[in-house]
Computed example of a mutant assay.
Amino acid sequence: MLAIISAVLFFISFLVNAADISTNDTFTSTNIMLLGLMVLALHVAGIGSGWSVSGRGRRR
């Protein structure tokens, strides 16, 4: 889920940069890209990945 959010943030950042949309200082394409990188780092770290299936329900 976090990877999808990160992809959406990267896409918004690309659109802001490619269309040369003037935004205020908070929502620049660089800041949106950095938010996407932060969310991607959380995804890689395993935050928000949900339940682990590997050890649950398959006990012998």
Rank of each mutant, 00 (worst) to 15 (best):
L15F: 05
S22W: 10
S13W: 05
H43E: 13
L40V: 11
R56E: 15
A3C: 11
M33S: 09
F14Y: 13
L35R: 01
T26K: 05
S52T: 14
L9I: 00
I4D: 14
N17M: 04
F14R: 05
F27C: 04
M38C: 12
W51Q: 15
S29G: 03
L9H: 01
M33Y: 08
I5S: 11
F11K: 09
L34C: 04
G36C: 04
V8L: 15
T23N: 12
G50W: 05
I5A: 14
W51C: 13
F11M: 08
I5K: 12
N24C: 01
L15W: 07
T30S: 08
I21S: 04
V8N: 03
G46A: 04
G57M: 05
A7M: 11
R60E: 14
G36P: 01
S49L: 10
S49A: 12
G36K: 04
F27A: 08
W51F: 14
L15K: 07
R60K: 11
I32M: 02
S6T: 04
L37R: 01
A7K: 05
S13D: 04
S52Y: 13
L40S: 14
L2S: 00
M1D: 00
A45D: 05
F10C: 06
R60Q: 09
A3W: 10
V16F: 06
A19E: 09
W51N: 14
G46I: 00
V39E: 00
F27G: 02
A18T: 12
L37E: 00
I32S: 03
V39D: 01
G57L: 07
T23R: 11
V44T: 12
I32F: 08
S54I: 12
F11S: 08
F10D: 09
I4C: 08
L40D: 01
G55M: 07
R60H: 11
L9R: 03
G57T: 11
S13Y: 03
T30Q: 02
S49W: 07
G50Y: 01
V16R: 00
R56D: 13
R58C: 11
N17R: 10
G57I: 03
G50S: 07
M1P: 04
T26V: 14
L15Y: 05
V8W: 10
L40F: 15
T28N: 01
W51P: 11
N31V: 04
S29N: 10
M1S: 09
V53S: 08
L35P: 00
I21V: 15
